[in-house]
Nucleic acid binder design. Structure first.
Lengths: 194, 194
DNA sequence: ACAAGCCTAGACCGATCTGTCTTCCCGATG
DNA sequence: CATCGGGAAGACAGATCGGTCTAGGCTTGT
């Protein structure tokens, strides 16, 4: 019986591979980490990796898709705590701030991965999907708040979101989220007023 | 006579290596590009590379330092066209917009390189120097404009600056610079008024 | 009991990696 | 002319890369 629930006594080979890939790819970069290190860390035969994923590139895609899903769930769960549209929109940066304080935070996985990817690769496509989700989320929240130019505000907030992720990683400064939140508040208030 | 001016009939081996490294590292990423491809593109012996730079890591550092110097000169030259403090501060995003429209623009080199670098490496140090220069530039421009909390505004503008670079690369959208400029204008006007 | 499937362990492949070394050429200087 | 040094060309080394394959074990259903 192949483990109907999320937790099994022993994680499957696929789960162990994804966990090892997530740790190594995220910490050191996709190009830096070789297949051998992943299978060794996962305690999985190399043949199993290629049976389950087909290639390193598809493993990278699965790693990015898992990061995408986890981020989406974490943000959507965090937003349920807020009630007013303004609080919900700014709550995205609160959720970001929580991510920044995690001990192994190392920036946006899609951003780093796409920096090493060739154009048109599955990695770039996964990054594009992630960015479209972020953009859509900001646009929807702006619309719910009654902002006239919701797309325009969403573009501005997306810049702050990306910039905060970059600063948190490169400056080792988790407070970038609160800086972004304050800037987002000013831009939002100006957008609803004008 | 070893070329006293910037232009020589035949660029030196060092110049050809830096030009090839700049093109390949910036387009494809530091880890992706091997030494062999650089020396082949530069038309330089591999031994010359190691005589001149010592290692690939130091070549990467020289590549990033050259990018840093070029960006600094380009921005500072662009800012001379503006007179008022407000125009000069927002002019940073105009200069950024010019970079975004260059045909081979591929994002911030320091950001991409540091995503593949190990902690404490020369690459990370070069990225940190670059970020400190950007931060200082925004801080100085904010002070010249009489902003009370110059450091706070500089942090916000730095977020927009980074976010615009990310969006221009990943969304293939050079207009991110004008979006960032508009947001920066609102944040600046709010900072001088309050 | 037995066969089918999934998994492990690891040898193996050709290519490529960073880095070293040797050999030779060519131009400038004494 | 002779000497000397920088650079070109490329063989070479040892490691690692992504990926394939074989051989054998362990569990499961029939």
């Amino acid at each position: 019986m192949p483990s109907k629930a999320t937790t099994a006594v022993t994680p499957s080979a696929r789960e162990r591979l994804l966990a090892a890939a997530d740790d190594l790819f995220y910490r050191e970069g996709v190009q830096t980490v070789g297949i051998d290190r992943i299978v060794q860390k996962a305690g999985v035969a190399k043949a199993s990796l290629y049976n389950l994923f087909g290639s390193k590139e598809e493993l990278v895609q699965a790693y990015l898709d898992a990061r995408h899903a986890a981020t989406r769930e974490q943000v959507e769960r965090a937003l349920t705590r807020f009630r007013t549209p303004r609080e919900r929109l700014l709550g995205v940066f609160d959720a970001q701030g929580q991510l920044f304080t995690e001990p192994d935070f190392n920036g946006c996985a899609h951003m780093s991965a796409s920096a090493e990817a060739r154009p048109g690769s599955p990695t770039e496509c996964a990054a594009e999907r992630f960015r479209q989700w972020v953009r859509m989320m900001f646009t929807d929240l702006a619309k719910e708040a009654g902002v006239a130019d919701a797309e325009g505000l969403a573009r501005q907030l997306h810049l702050l979101y990306d910039g905060a992720g970059v600063s948190a990683r490169m400056d080792h400064d988790p407070s970038a989220a609160t800086t972004a939140r304050a800037a987002a508040a000013m831009l939002f208030d100006a957008a609803v007023k004008g």
